[in-house]
Amino acid sequence: MSDDAESERHEVVLVTRPAPARPANPFSVIRDVVSNSVGMATYTATTMTSLIEQAVSSAVETSLNTALDRLVPTIADAIIERIDLNRIVLDQVDLNLIVNKALDTLDLTQLVIDRVDVNAIVAEADIDAVIDRVPIIPLANYVIDEIDLPQIIRDSTSGIAGDAMNTARRQSVGADEMVSRIADRITFRRKARKVDAPGKPNSLKDAFLEELEESTPPVGEGEKLL
């Protein structure tokens, strides 16, 4: 392949020959001179024009700005004095949209927390007026129901003031257990006594038994035996 390429290579020999000088044409010389002169004049005129234009415009602009600075506020004031801006805003602007947009972008809660002294506001508030609006009696009833006041009263009266009969019963129940314990120890009984009553006792009705199962409090040994 390379051999083929070698064989197909051609040599080209360029031979230059100087052209013969032409005789100068006087018209063409004149034409060249004229055209060059016209081009120079045009360029100069253009440049001058733009320079003048720049200078004039900057001068005009400066003076105009000065004039505008003096004139515009006066004119604007005069205009504003003569038109009802409120009316225009109310008529032309969708205030709801703007306010909603503003509110959407603001975290009002955080803003209030950051900027407002809530304690100072509360200190200034008329608490009596607030309390007057609070339903005190329903609130008290609610508290009584929630803390189960009847049971508390029952427990405190039976425990502290002492229902004499219940106290005697409690003490005898404690004595029962003590006697049982001593007897069990003497007789080497290790199993707990089977003291469950047979069947369902008559006076302990079903509802009471259910209530008893639900409300059986965790009573310690000492508490139970008093």
Partner: peptide
Amino acid sequence: PSDAIPFQGERAGFVT
């Protein structure tokens, strides 16, 4: 009284 509930219905002991 709530402390008397647990032993209700159990067989009573000797002292009582």
